[in-house]
Amino acid sequence: MAHAHKLEIFRGLIKFKSNTQKIWGVLLLLSIITLIEVVLGIYKPAALMVPSMTPFEGGFGALLGNIIFSGFIYTKSLNLIFIVLTIVKAYYITWDFMHMRDETKSLRRLVVWTTIFLISYLVFILLQEGGYIESVYTNGFVKRDF
């Protein structure tokens, strides 16, 4: 079972001498990310509590722009940062702890693209519908302030 490990992370920027060293390096990275998340979560800087872009106004181009930049337009910057950091953490757990880095390209794609595709679809459709129901509650004739 003595197969070789790929020992560099950050596309070769950091190269570890042994697999054990790489594990501790990745732990350090994950801890730093968690620490950043916790500090941001406790202090919640006011500047990050609003979306970083305002919606585009106008015709079809604006609609397209709003869809493409929806993460920046409709999500608070802080939440966007949290989600991106989470995905970064997930990447290093899968790649280095679960040894995805050492598997063949086909196994990697098999696992990763399947989940990414299906989860994106699920998340899109549920959040979309949740927003719709919220709009029915708010703009419709549903009374709930009693």
Partner: peptide, 24 residues
């Protein structure tokens, strides 16, 4: 793991659904 990941993302997406429903 792939199938279990889909189960969990189903739960988390449902959580997101309910949260968007009561966003305020």
């Amino acid at each position: 793991i792939v199938s279990d990941a889909l189960t969990f993302s189903g739960f988390l997406a449902a959580y997101g659904f309910s949260r968007f429903k009561f966003i305020d």
